[in-house]
Design a protein around this nucleic acid. Sequence first.
DNA 1: GTCCCCGCTATTGTATACATTAAGTATTCA
DNA 2: TGAATACTTAATGTATACAATAGCGGGGAC
Lengths: 250, 250
Amino acid sequence: MAEREVDRSVSQTVKAQLALRDQLLSGSLRPGERISELQAVETTGASRTPVRMALVRLEEEGLLEAIPSGGFMVKAFSERDISDSIELRGTLEGLAARFAAERGVSARELEPLKECLSAIDELLRQVPISVDAFSSYVTLNARFHALLTELSRSPPLIRQIDRASALPFASPSGFVMAQSALPEAQQILIIGQEHHRVVIDAIENREGARAEAVMREHARLAVRNLRLALRNRTHLDLLPALALIKTATD
Amino acid sequence: MAEREVDRSVSQTVKAQLALRDQLLSGSLRPGERISELQAVETTGASRTPVRMALVRLEEEGLLEAIPSGGFMVKAFSERDISDSIELRGTLEGLAARFAAERGVSARELEPLKECLSAIDELLRQVPISVDAFSSYVTLNARFHALLTELSRSPPLIRQIDRASALPFASPSGFVMAQSALPEAQQILIIGQEHHRVVIDAIENREGARAEAVMREHARLAVRNLRLALRNRTHLDLLPALALIKTATD
DNA sequence: GTCCCCGCTATTGTATACATTAAGTATTCA
DNA sequence: TGAATACTTAATGTATACAATAGCGGGGAC
């Protein structure tokens, strides 16, 4: 094994998993396509054992599907699969927000959330918003949702939300990008930001039901958002995750 | 490899996974305990590769936890972890019930649900209920919940509910058993059965909100149920899954 | 006597060889 | 000529050998 370059800073399994996920989300591998272990070995640089572990993990993650006769194929999703996933995630986040409100959260714990909020406000002042600002928005929004989830203090719930978000298309923030040039885009971001504000307020005032309701509404907004994006396919290239959507023939 | 008996009817990976899960739920392996690959190889009869695949799957399933320095340990759960898991599952089932109601379900699809309902009614007529009848109840109840989940016609949601149920303690039916001899037991089963009846009615009448609400209430009943069971520990041996609960010192 | 360092051992992470099965192709028979 | 069967091949499933690392124990020095 002279020529195999081995990077020992991360495990081969993790390296393979990241590489394969990249390939999946970038669209190098088409939905329904069978994934070849040997090919994966070549493209990832790891050997078969770590590659197989990565494949198992990606299957559990929901990006791959086991073929009964052996091996794995790239999973394909319908538009409804995706909108359901968004709603599902919203439902779980609603539960997290309710837990946070009911169980109580100190002002100190809410601080990072509020910082996120302000930072997003800052970005949204730009009209129309630039691509760079969008990129920052996506990061900040993801951070906001992650922090909110943490406030539930419920490891099983946090874990489950992570899994529901693992399918990257379930990330509401992602879809926004697809329509950055649409006139409705900015408006949608502003409504979403309003939701963020309300959920913090509800948690501060220990209004569990209100906190839950607004997060579910937030997800419904994201679903409308997705529909809009799919009707205006011009910017879909900004959404690598959508490579996993089934083609029209399905 | 003369003496290793190989059963070719199922894959070694699946065999190892089932065997290890058995060990976890039966309490042979204690929470927090590190799991030895070599030992697992001996007890399962599979070789290291399939054992490792099984360990990865069990980690994704939530029964094991990866140790940073390598290997896996048996995950430990607090009482709140478990009650949160039940509520989480109820929330997802509520969404499934709502989807079923909103998207419409034919009378023919509801038939199996109603059969389950009647069968459970039959069992509950026994007062007090026998251990055998309990066992049947658990099976039927699980079937009812699975069928209900299917009605949502949402693969991502079904998948997620399966995962939330994968932690077996999250199965509301399980906890009932722990208190089969308690005076409150029968009453709880009867209330649960009433919930089942209501959710079917709500789905038939396309009342999404009502269908969702009753499933969430159903989960809250299961949580009360769990608390009751834990206060009356005499029958905990009926609940192997609870072997995973952290001991009092945690 | 205690603390630190070195080396050993046990266990995991990785690579690869071997077994088995499924799919594709060619050949033969009807 | 078409269909069925057998053979070949390429892939996955399994087992095991090898490498690296972390934890532990002993010994030495301060």
